[in-house]
């Protein structure tokens, strides 16, 4: 029998899936009273967890879902075709009329303006990444508490 006790993770593994433990670990656990005691506690815990009442909805789910589906399947008011054509014309016609000016907006910009645009984009991305990192740190702290 090896002298060092297996980690508690291995003891849990022994209770739930003994086949994944090594022969050395199994032999230690089977002959060590201290590990046996922890294993016994985990066995009780696993048994009790499996025996807890499963959560169930306190309403008739099938009826609720069918009701919802019938509502969703009810015909919805469609946008008239005339309105769609009008909106498209409202966007396309000005673009067509001012197409030459629109081209110069992008070609005549100075290097300073480009610099400003990139700097602004950089700041936005930086702030986003910082917020993401803070959120990650928060989650790690909560887990480690």
């Amino acid at each position: 029998m090896s002298r060092t006790h297996p980690s508690e993770e291995v003891l849990q593994q022994f209770v739930l899936e003994a086949v994944t433990c090594s022969a050395e670990e199994i032999s230690h656990i089977e002959s060590c009273p201290e590990c046996q005691s922890t294993v016994a506690t985990y066995k009780v815990l696993a048994g009790e967890l499996a025996g807890l009442a499963a959560p169930a909805f306190d309403f008739d789910l099938v009826a609720a879902v069918i009701g919802q589906l019938e509502e969703a399947a009810a015909p919805q008011a469609k946008m008239p075709k005339g309105t769609i054509v009008l909106i498209a014309a409202f966007i396309v016609i000005p673009l067509w009329l001012f197409r030459k000016s629109a081209y110069f907006v992008f070609t005549d910009m100075s290097a300073v303006f480009y610099g400003l645009v990139f700097a602004a984009a950089g700041i936005v991305v930086g702030v986003f990444l910082l917020r993401l990192y803070k959120k990650y740190q928060q989650i790690i702290n909560l887990i480690n508490e």
Binding site: A54, P55, A56, F57, L61, V62, V65
Partner: peptide, 15 residues
């Protein structure tokens, strides 16, 4: 399909 998966969904939503 709803009946077959209700228990699992209740488990997730309930917790």
């Amino acid at each position: 399909l709803v009946e077959n998966t209700e228990r699992l969904v209740a488990q997730i939503v309930g917790k």
